[in-house]
Amino acid sequence: MNREYKTGEIQAGKPVQQVPWLEWLAAGIGLFLVLGIFGVIGWQALNGATVPPVITVTVENVTPVEGGYRVLFRAQNTAGEAAAQVEVEGKVSTDSGEEVSQVVIDYVPGHSDRRGGLFFTRDPSSGTLAVRAIGFADP
């Protein structure tokens, strides 16, 4: 590629001396960000990004609210692959019967967690409370 001829009047001295410091800075920051992003994504690629989702749900808080009880939970995906439409089901079993509530979480990315809540009319502390993920779809 012959680019010299039309740059003659601007490019009087050595081209290296004409690169302004701000250009070096901008290009340097860009290069740094490229390497950083490649590093993180590459690391993920090599560290089990293709392991199918494993989702564990832990109950974080149970509070009496108007009309019943609110159970806050955290769904944690301990594997690398993201899960979509994760269905979480909670069951309160008491002597007088059971109550089931469920919710769908749109996405739980790999090695990440998402929070949600379930409502019950029975008091979870009066019996046993079990909350678990019952299924997911590939994104």
């Binding site: 250009e23 901008a26 290009a27 920051i29 860009g30 290069l31 960000l33 490229v34």
Partner: peptide
């Protein structure tokens, strides 16, 4: 250099 700068932006 321009490509990296644009990516940085």
């Amino acid at each position: 250099m321009d490509a990296f700068a644009a990516f940085g932006v």
